[in-house]
Nucleic acid binder design. Structure first.
Lengths: 185, 185
DNA sequence: GAAGTCATGTAAAATGTTACATGATTCT
DNA sequence: AGAATCATGTAACATTTTACATGACTTC
């Protein structure tokens, strides 16, 4: 399970509130390669706090709930490093669109085509968005310190992933059209 | 949730026993884009059976437990088609190696390099294996009927995915080496 | 004789998703 | 005035993972 470790990794860079951690997952770099809901984040943080992996400082805010600023502890960092030291396992692809490969013959090919086109557009947009996030790093590639280079590489991973989807959609649409045209002759 | 639908999709091609479905996930095309353990498969199948999405015929086997051959029912096929008709959502990438982008600075860069090299080798092997599975389809690309073309496209998706990993590893290793060399000067 | 394959499951624990709940502030 | 953002959570449910359990047949 990497949710725990991802949160620890966030906090190893800088102290953050639960709200900020959740936002990081939803919009930030974290969301490039891991996903977690707000509820999961709050639950995990309070668990980590009980285990002394993180501590928080409650900041009173006028007219609002206290903001809990979480920081990683020595114990937390130890565990994180320990985890970083283990070999990683490739994650299995879990992709709904893949089921079409098994059961696409049950629906008209036009529907498959339309769905692939829809997905292609989506992935194109995501790639675009990620590229914007990466701009700052990509521009100064030769000046980056290691810490930022790693960040850049993760975003690059996500960009490639999205672009690969776009290319696959292209390839697939062409192949389907070819076969469908053949059948019509 | 697509486990249910993936199993229904398998069965829409041909009746299978629980054991065979599980094998499909572990080794077959199904494993390209979805993953499920044997226990999950058996649990899901008996649930689907109670809901009349599938039925089974028990085949007695000498000196062995009965083999339960599951087939999809009309109701099951209806549900599957219904599901195929909905738009799919891209799956979030969940990838342990990504955490390194956030916390790689906590360990020596050599360790990061070694891990990326290890992963590159793994993905190269997986791509190789998938290409073998695809050979039969790739050879007869222009003769494939739609059903088999879809299958080919799913395998292609998986191949691209693995090859994209390999290329990213390459790119990343070069970038890290460049920065590390700079620091040493 | 040991390892691997065929064949089925149960049970507990960990994780993740969905829905609900509250309430002030800031932006349009 | 309504929507979005900041800020925290609880509870129920679904899903996944891990460990356990059994036993014959086949291949090295």
């Amino acid at each position: 399970m990497a949710l725990k470790h991802t949160i620890l990794a966030f906090l190893s860079r800088q102290p953050l509130s639960g709200y900020e951690v959740a936002k990081e997952f939803a919009e930030g770099f974290g969301g490039c390669f891991w996903k977690a809901s707000q509820q999961q984040v709050y639950a995990e943080l309070s668990k980590l706090e009980k285990q002394d992996r993180v501590i928080y400082e409650a900041i009173p805010q006028p007219g609002r709930l206290d903001k809990k600023i979480y920081s990683i502890t020595a114990k937390g960092q130890e565990e994180l490093i320990d985890w970083l030291t283990q070999p990683t396992e490739p994650t299995a692809i879990r992709e709904d669109l893949g089921v079409i490969g098994l059961a696409g013959h049950l629906v008209p090919s036009q529907m498959v085509v339309r769905e692939i086109e829809r997905r292609q557009k989506l992935h194109r947009e995501m790639a675009q968005h990620l590229k914007k996030m990466d701009e700052h790093f990509a521009k100064n590639l030769d000046l980056l310190e290691l810490k930022d280079l790693y960040m850049h590489l993760v975003i690059r991973r996500a960009i490639r992933y999205q672009e690969d989807w776009v290319a696959w959609c292209d390839e697939s649409l062409k192949a389907i059209n070819r076969v469908v045209d053949n059948l019509e002759d």
